[in-house]
Simulated assay, not measured.
Amino acid sequence: MLTEKAVRAAASKGKAYKLAGSRGLRLHVSPSGHKSWRYKYRFEKKERLLTFGACP
């Protein structure tokens, strides 16, 4: 489970990376420092990715 402190502390690196939350919810951090919430799920045997938006 991600805490607010961990989300705020996530800094950009050379490559994009993800911080795992729970049940498929992840925080995606791009090399430029942009943070967005993404949800990975399966529908009709296909993997899908839904982006909710920027993290303040």
Rank of each mutant, 00 (worst) to 15 (best):
K40P: 01
G21C: 04
S36A: 09
H34S: 12
R48I: 08
L50G: 07
K15H: 09
R23D: 12
L50F: 15
S22G: 10
E44M: 11
K5S: 06
R48G: 03
E44K: 14
L49V: 12
R42S: 13
C55L: 05
F52P: 00
K40F: 15
S30R: 14
A10R: 04
L49M: 13
A6G: 01
S12K: 14
T51E: 13
A20D: 12
Y17A: 06
R42T: 14
S36H: 10
K13L: 11
Y39H: 15
A16S: 09
M1S: 04
A20S: 13
Y39S: 05
K35T: 06
Y39M: 10
R42L: 11
K18W: 09
H28R: 14
K5E: 05
H28M: 12
G33V: 00
V29P: 04
R38Y: 07
A54R: 05
Y17K: 09
L2F: 00
V29Y: 08
R23L: 08
R48H: 15
A20V: 11
T51L: 05
K46C: 06
L50T: 02
P56I: 01
A16T: 08
V29A: 05
E47W: 11
G53I: 09
T3K: 02
Y17R: 07
F52C: 03
S22R: 13
S36W: 08
Y39Q: 08
W37E: 09
K40D: 15
S22A: 14
S22K: 11
A16E: 12
L50Y: 12
A54D: 12
G21S: 03
F43R: 14
A16K: 10
A6H: 06
A54Q: 04
L49S: 09
G33M: 03
G14I: 03
L49C: 10
